[in-house]
Design a binder for these strands. Structure first.
Length: 432
RNA sequence: GGAGAGGUGGCCGAGUGGUUGAAGGCGCACGCUUGGAAAGCGUGUAUGCGGGCAACCGUAUCGCAGGUUCGAAUCCUGUUCUCUCCGCCA
């Protein structure tokens, strides 16, 4: 949620920004409700003041009939004003929640994701002297995947992973957790990219996979709800990304400045209904209802937020380079960064079977937009309190990460060459 | 799932209808004291909203949501979380 004071002072820019991001909001109407809400609040405060005065004068003794009568009138007036106030607040909050976060100045303006801008390409797509297979074909050949039985048990977009595909996934988890919690690795990424950020390593987290409606909504990740799985008879939803449960864990807390930033590397099985994607990406495990993901989350000071965002992208790139996967980096345009985002970067991995780059990572910088509703704050050294800035980014998606590895490192016979950095986590094996 | 107890400020903890936004203690900050430190003494120390250049003023908040009352941290209802015991269970 935006700061209403900011909206008041920058109404035109806020309206324009919403338009660029493709959200239909009416700032003038929001400001009308803001004004009437404030007016009602002042009325209510005055009536409460009167009520408090009267009740204070009554304490102890037996109040006179007149005093009681007047107090009752004040009470009735207050009840009426409070009812209107409540309504105005509900409408106001509803409208304010719909206003998307302001995009940073360097975010390209665009109406669809086709207007995302390629910032750079790293790594040469490998030339194969045979027809490269898709990950699904390789998995099929090697007995790594059973979607037919999954369909019997759970329906479409689920899978049983088997054998070395499972070993590969666990190796990747170990690899990423080890790197992100390692001081030397963090220092190296900072140095190589000339970043001015804290060198605190990430704390590994295994979070709950469900969260309450209120916190999901405060993260601004609940909508559209038809892409989420709701737990029947509970006020709980399955998370769609570890971000949802990592970012909300410090709701309603005030950090000390010295404690910033908080960096987490979470591992979670994530769930998405993929509403509206019928028929797309049905081959293999590219788009599933359930997929595991390693996710970075960082809570920190406002002035470090953007650099932290760049730091996370640098980590994503470093991991891709270590895994020897060619990729490109996209600056997402206004239409694609998402409602709570101020800036967004995607990484797309080269998939030989599709002869193109496909999305594997995303990095999101939300400024204080999420923190405002989460009430996650920091007490500065001078005693003042302000909202923190949130950043999240994929460290490695499990399904699309393994897909990229299998496809890019495949050999003519359907075996897969293991990137050197993963071998320690696979018992030294060079080939899967 | 059943029975019971309880959620108060950074922490501990008092408080069962009326200057209680909240005693007392701890912690923290500043000052005094000291050669220096400890101890001691003094002062200060929650968050949101509205108003004001500001000092500050008003208002709300004692898990959350309702209700009773002139007045609620205190009474009533619902709900949620924690703890103990029983049951079940990886």
């Amino acid at each position: 949620m935006l700061d209403i004071r900011f909206v008041r002072e920058n109404a035109e820019a806020v309206q324009k920004n919403a338009q660029a991001k493709g959200y239909d909001v009416n700032i003038n109407e929001l400001l009308k409700w803001d004004a009437s809400k404030r007016q009602l609040q002042q009325q209510a405060d005055m009536l409460r003041e009167r009520r408090n005065e009267m009740s204070a004068s009554m304490k102890g003794g037996k109040p006179s009939e007149d005093a009681l009568r007047e107090a009752k009138i004040v009470k009735e007036e207050l009840n009426a004003v409070e009812a209107s106030l409540k309504e105005a607040e509900a409408t106001f909050t509803d409208l304010l929640k719909k206003v998307p976060n302001m995009a940073l100045a360097d975010v390209p303006v665009g109406a669809t994701e086709d207007e995302n801008v390629v910032a750079k390409k790293v790594g040469e797509p490998k030339h194969f002297d045979f027809e490269p297979k898709s990950h699904a074909e390789i998995a099929d050949l090697r007995g790594w995947l059973d979607k037919e039985r999954a369909a019997k048990v759970t329906g479409s977009r689920f899978a049983y992973l088997k054998g070395d595909m499972v070993m590969l996934q666990f190796a990747l988890i170990q690899f990423v957790m080890s790197k992100l919690s390692d001081q030397a690795f963090i220092d190296e990424v900072i140095r190589e990219n000339n970043l001015n950020v804290s060198n605190k390593p990430f704390l590994p987290i295994l979070p709950p996979f469900m969260l309450r409606t209120e916190l999901y909504d405060a993260m601004d990740r609940l909508e559209p709800r038809d892409d989420r799985y709701k737990i029947e008879d509970e006020d709980l939803w399955l998370q769609g990304s570890a971000e949802h449960v990592l970012g909300s864990m410090h709701a309603d807390e005030i950090f000390t400045e010295a404690d910033m930033p908080r960096r987490y590397i979470g591992y979670a099985t994530s769930f998405r209904r993929e509403a509206g994607t019928y028929g797309k990406d049905m081959e293999g495990t590219f788009r599933m209802h359930q997929f595991d993901k390693l996710e970075m989350e960082s809570l920190g000071l406002a002035e470090n937020g953007l650099e932290e965002h760049l730091f996370m992208v640098a980590i994503q790139e470093k991991l891709m380079q270590l895994l020897e996967i060619p990729y490109q980096v996209l600056m997402k345009c206004t239409a694609d960064i998402g409602k709570p985002n101020a800036r967004g970067v995607d990484i797309e991995a080269w998939l030989p079977s599709q002869n193109t780059y496909r999305e594997t990572h995303t990095a999101d910088y939300m400024t204080d937009y999420q923190a405002r509703r989460l009430k996650t704050r920091v007490r500065r050294a001078d005693g003042s309190i302000e909202l923190i800035h949130t950043n999240d980014a994929t460290a490695l998606p499990l399904s699309r990460g393994p897909i990229a590895i299998v496809e890019n490192h495949q050999q003519a016979d359907g075996t897969v060459h293991v990137p050197e950095v993963l071998r320690p986590y696979l018992g030294g094996r060079e080939i899967l």
